[in-house]
Simulated assay, not measured.
Amino acid sequence: MSELMFAAAAGVPLAAGWSVHALRLTRRIESARRDPLTGLWTREAFERRAGRLLARHPHVVVVLVDLDGFKAVNDTHGHAAGDAALQATGASLNDMVAGSRRAVAGRLGGDEFAAAVALANPVALPWLLRGLHDEITAPFRHGGRDLTVGASIGAVLSSDLPEGGGRELSVLLRMADEAMYTAKRGGGGWQNAAFTPRSTTTAGRRTGRAGTHTTQRREAA
Rank of each mutant, 00 (worst) to 15 (best):
R102T: 14
G187S: 01
T182Y: 07
F46T: 10
E135D: 14
I29D: 13
I29A: 03
L132C: 04
V20R: 14
G51T: 13
L54N: 07
S199D: 14
T201I: 15
R33K: 01
L93I: 10
R56V: 10
R167N: 08
A103W: 06
S152L: 11
D83W: 05
F70I: 01
F6M: 09
G17Y: 08
T42N: 15
M180A: 11
Y181D: 03
A45Q: 13
P58H: 11
G69K: 02
L173C: 06
L40C: 07
L119K: 08
R52V: 07
G143Q: 04
F46S: 00
L173N: 03
P197R: 01
A88F: 11
V62C: 09
H79W: 02
E3D: 12
A15P: 01
D35H: 09
S170A: 15
A98L: 10
V12I: 13
T42D: 14
N192L: 15
A22Y: 11
L129Y: 04
F195S: 13
L37A: 10
P139T: 00
P122G: 09
R43H: 13
S100W: 07
V117G: 08
D68F: 06
T42H: 15
A176Y: 02
A179T: 00
G17S: 07
E219M: 09
H57Q: 12
A120F: 11
L132Q: 08
L54D: 09
S152Q: 03
G109K: 04
T89W: 12
A151Y: 03
E30G: 02
A155N: 06
F46G: 09
G211I: 04
A105Y: 05
V63I: 08
A32P: 04
G166D: 15
L125N: 02
V97G: 09
L108K: 08
H21A: 14
G186M: 05
S159L: 12
E178Y: 01
W190F: 15
S158V: 00
A105W: 03
P162R: 04
G188N: 12
W190Q: 04
P13N: 04
L37T: 09
L93D: 01
R141W: 02
S159V: 06
L4H: 11
M5I: 12
A118D: 06
G39R: 03
G17N: 11
R24G: 05
R56E: 15
E112P: 01
K184N: 03
G131I: 00
I136S: 00
R217Q: 10
L125T: 03
L119D: 10
V104A: 02
L4R: 14
A8E: 14
L128F: 00
L161N: 01
R174E: 15
T214S: 15
V156N: 01
M5L: 13
A22I: 07
A183V: 06
M96S: 04
L132S: 02
A85H: 04
T214K: 03
R218V: 15
L64A: 02
G131W: 00
R174C: 10
H213T: 12
L147P: 05
R130I: 05
L108Y: 11
A45H: 14
G69F: 12
D111Y: 00
I153Y: 03
T42Q: 15
A221E: 08
S158K: 05
E178S: 12
L25R: 13
A22E: 14
S152V: 05
V65Q: 02
V73P: 03
L67C: 10
R43K: 09
A183T: 00
S159N: 09
T76E: 11
G204D: 02
F6Q: 14
N121A: 10
R209P: 04
A124W: 13
L86S: 05
